[in-house]
């Protein structure tokens, strides 16, 4: 910044809510100096440290990894740590908690319902050989082409932006929403998994993908490029094919056989004993 240029400022309009205080959320304004590279989250810290220590939000990694800082910023759900103020194209930053979730305090939404839906769709590998799953003796076989069928969906950081953007979730608490459905698809397509029939018990009902009408907002706002709308349509294809008996189930990938005709090289030491 050159000496004669005036320091630029940013106006923050933040939605505040105190559960123990007066009933309704209200807007509060703060003006802070703008420095180049300031993210929306940085600005909130400037406010908390210098202006109003009572402001509350969730954040952790400040680098788009942990998924805790999803907020409704200038009309779109986004990660506040991943949003530069310069990219908003406005000197006013309007920050509200993610819609479609109860507000616990200030910018903190209650993500509980989303995780209940997530859990209900068994977002983990399900397969019959529990013994092997608990105490693995080797890897399960999976080619890289097979991995690419679900890898994109596994980048999800559970930031809830997609749920805040979904028009169906805006009225319907029964529908699972984009993130849980994308995760169901992520595990359904994993070749190591055998849980399609178990997840189907939930997916064939109103929790399933049937109330998705492809408004596509989830994919538009997802900060990780997970593309939940694509996952939901692919999930629906499998379920429709299943109903029409066109789906050919494949057995889950087998454990890779240990080669037995290979001798250990003498110069490689034994692995140290397991610590856990």
């Amino acid at each position: 910044m050159t000496a004669d240029s005036k320091p630029k400022t940013v106006l923050y309009r933040v939605l505040r809510f105190e559960p123990e205080g007066s009933s309704n959320p209200r807007w509060q304004e703060y003006t802070i100096p703008y420095t180049s590279g300031l993210t929306v989250l940085d600005g909130l810290w400037v406010i908390k440290e210098g202006v109003d220590p009572s402001l509350v939000w969730r954040s952790s990694c400040r680098m788009g990894i942990c998924g805790s800082c999803g907020m409704f910023i200038n009309g779109l759900p986004r990660l506040s740590c991943n949003t530069q103020i310069s990219e908003l194209g406005s000197s006013t930053v309007e920050v509200a908690p993610l819609p479609n979730f109860d507000i616990l305090r200030d910018l903190v939404p209650d993500l509980g319902p989303m995780f209940d839906h997530h859990q209900a769709l068994s977002p983990f590998i399900l397969r019959p050989d529990r013994e092997e799953l608990e105490k693995p003796t080797a890897e399960y076989y999976q080619s890289s082409a097979e991995m690419e069928r679900y890898l994109q969906f596994s980048y999800c950081i559970k930031c809830a932006s997609c749920i805040a953007a979904c028009p169906t979730v805006a009225t319907d608490p029964v529908y699972s929403g984009p993130m849980p459905l994308a995760q169901a698809q992520r595990y359904n397509t994993d070749t190591r998994d055998d849980g399609f029939d178990i997840r189907k018990l939930a997916l064939r009902g109103p929790q399933g993908p049937w109330r998705c009408h492809f408004a596509g907002e989830c994919s538009r706002v997802c900060p990780k490029g997970v593309d939940p709308a694509k996952a939901i349509q692919l999930l629906r294809r499998d379920l429709v094919a299943d109903y029409l008996r066109l789906r050919r189930p494949t057995p889950p990938a087998a454990v890779v056989e240990k080669p037995d005709d290979i001798a250990r090289r003498p110069d490689i030491p034994e692995a140290p004993p397991a610590t856990v």
């Binding site: 997916l203 064939r204 009902g205 109103p206 399933g208 049937w210 629906r236 429709v240 109903y243 029409l244």
Partner: peptide, 12 residues
């Protein structure tokens, strides 16, 4: 009735 069935018929 399950939406899986009804929706498939809806599409057809």
């Amino acid at each position: 009735m399950q939406d899986q069935k009804l929706w498939t018929w809806h599409l057809a």
